[in-house]
Write a protein that binds this DNA or RNA. Structure first.
Lengths: 230, 230
DNA sequence: GATGATTTGTACGTATGTATA
DNA sequence: ATATACATACGTACAAATCAT
């Protein structure tokens, strides 16, 4: 949880080449593949198969899987193969609801606490997203959108809150991949962001909280509508 | 939180339906000892020593420690001994702040969603706490107080929110042990609870959120005052 | 700063529990 | 239902990295 958070917030510092253990590397790779949907929910993770795939012994694989289980991305019952977590529909609703509240909290604190530089930076990212609507590149929009939300987390100046918000986002992400499939969403998303940015720049915490909460719940609504369309 | 060192040495209890792995038992025991302060923050966890202590090999010990690291209770840098997490003062403030918001959220949802039975149950627990003020048994008060907050978490009817709220509480708990040391706190705590319960019973979500948030921040203030007194 | 001692990281073998014929 | 096959859990051995001198 902590590691993923750091990765998203700071990236790999080129100056600090930390030598990771194999277990850590495996955890990052597997987490990434689960988040991106390469390994689908309900897939089972065979220790031996994964060990073969990466040409390592089962020991670090085991360690990686158990850590993923601790973070909630996979379920690992004793003496049985771990499977990628497949929350019930009810649980997913709860996770989205919680994510909306957490991101709302971050936005509220950000409105109160962001430095001048941070406010300038989020405005710039917001503008970058605006221009990306035209280009119609959902993948690129998705990337910069991550930055946008990341600015809000770090702007809240509460490392623990940022950490659990990111963890929640990660845990939900296997279930929101179809998100920017339809390009109309990009434009709407930007309008919602606009309300958030305006409130933050005006240091209006309640408005920022409300705008962000509604933005996330809209994302959830899109997901629910997508599910119904299947 | 529920374990004793005994269980790992003996065979399975006759009534025990689930047979945990040694790693899981160790994780529970170690987490419990960290939370209760038996293992103090900044202590280092020597894998070999722990393995000797419980008469197991290093393998399950390692697994337990890495899972504790994933939950944030300990830090486990590569190639070095894991140490019980010792958050900076700034981080602790952030954790308390976040806990206040999370518990506030739970209380708000509980006010809206609790069933009749759940409302009756929390009122009963609240009354039990009132009577415990007289007895002046801080340990017992602490236990029932946990139940009180647990009722709020489950009453929110959001399993994920409950999960991260409990996780936050666990992570903060090594740093709030001196809490009910002075008996005057019990009475004040109960007054604060009273505002929470009243708001929940009246289905007044904003009031419940506010009352719970202030209750937790009071707990933090007591902790901060205690720190200054050292 | 180099070297020995100590501790962590990984590989692998065996035992135990689970699933399937 | 019993037995067989197979995956996981744990112990042990060794390699690699850290630390102490």
């Amino acid at each position: 949880m902590v590691t993923e958070a750091r990765t998203i917030l700071e990236g790999r510092g080129a100056d600090a080449p930390v030598r990771l253990t194999r277990a850590d590397e495996l955890r990052q790779i597997l987490a990434d593949e689960i988040v991106r949907g390469v390994i689908a929910p309900a897939s089972s993770l065979d220790e031996t198969a994964i060990a073969r795939r990466f040409s390592v012994s089962r020991t670090p694989v085991r360690e990686a899987i158990r850590q993923l289980a601790a973070s909630g991305l996979v379920e690992a019952p004793p003496h049985r193969a771990a499977v990628v977590a497949r929350p019930s529909h009810e649980n997913l609703i709860g996770m989205f609801e919680t994510m909306a509240e957490l991101e709302g909290l971050c936005a509220g604190y950000a409105a109160e606490r962001m430095t001048r530089q941070e406010r300038a930076a989020i405005e710039a990212t917001h503008e970058e997203l605006r221009q990306l609507i035209q280009s119609g590149d959902p993948q690129r929009y998705h990337e910069i959108n991550q930055n946008f939300h990341g600015s809000v987390y770090s702007g809240a100046h509460n490392a623990y809150l940022a950490e659990i918000t990111i963890a929640t986002r990660i845990r939900v992400s296997p279930f929101r991949r179809a998100q920017f499939r339809n390009l109309g969403r990009l434009s709407k998303s930007h309008e919602e962001h606009d309300r958030v940015v305006t409130a933050i720049l005006r240091a209006n915490a309640p408005a920022a909280t409300k705008a962000m909460r509604e933005h996330i719940m809209t994302v959830y609504d899109e997901y629910a509508a997508y599910l119904r369309s299947l």
